[in-house]
Amino acid sequence: MTADLRSGKAGAALGAGRPPDCVPTRARRVTAPWAYLLAAVVLLALVCVYPLAELVHLAFSAVGPTNLIGSWPWAGLANFRAVLANPELMQAVRVTAELTVMLLVSDLVLGFVVASVLVSQSYSTSAVMSLMVFVWALPPLVSGTVWKFLLSSNGAVNSLLGLLGFQPVDFLASPTLALWSVGLVTCWAALPFATLVLRSGMLAVPRDVIEAAAIDGARYGKIQTRIVLPLLRPTMGILAILAVIYSFQGFNFIYVMTEGGPGTATANVPFLAYQQAFTSFELSGGAAIALLALAFVLVLAVPYALSVRHEEHE
């Protein structure tokens, strides 16, 4: 596909009516669009930098239940050493890793499949999409509570299993199953978001590309994986990194459904940080955990940021 400079919409967009043989004497090299970034940078600098700085300061100080207000004694690396020595952290990392993998698979694989099915515009797809978005928009307090009831020992799911002749299952009481339950509910809650984003990306794929491939004899599966999927690489990339960030920072469903239990079977890293900071008031401990999680995501983020440079236009 080549761009026709004058008769296409590009030409029209720049001011129709210019005589076709009037070419400017010098093609313009666009300058870096720094002004477009300005408002965002200013706002974020004014609002977000201070809390981040405080978080770092907390992590390197000794702030506990009694000295949040007042001067903070310097603690150096003591908090980090204490956190790394805490056996609960290893457990939390394992839990986080499992939940992250579940969310990645669900968002990227299931998200792609569901978006592919829902991309066509019909009444049924609109209805399903609206249902999914409506449920996604419910706060985790509400949807988490619903699943807590549904999965409890005398809840709807176990009643159904009972009717089918099975024994009741400890969805939320068994340490291994509880993790699966919380993970699946989190994936269920996140799927509409992934679907929405991927679907919007798919709608931007030019139809004639797909039609050309179909005329060449490609079947649906091949079209999706060989043509659509590569075009969605930036979208999949951002979904992946957002899923990782969410897994290392969010714990809403854990909080509502199991409170990190049974024991610490579903306590992930951000939950541990929250519990340290706001249940036990060990604010420095919580900040240290949060900073470690941040450092870990940073390790993933830098290669991501470098790799996306290939995506950019000149």
């Binding site: 981040l52 405080e54 978080l55 920072q249 951000p270 929250y274 995501v297 940073l298 983020a301 950019e312």
Partner: peptide, 20 residues
């Protein structure tokens, strides 16, 4: 600049909201 800004945007999302 783009790479740096993207990294910062990712970092900012990792700050736990209750602590802010």
């Amino acid at each position: 600049v783009i790479a740096v800004v993207l990294t910062i945007l990712l970092i900012l999302q990792m700050v736990p909201q209750p602590m802010t």
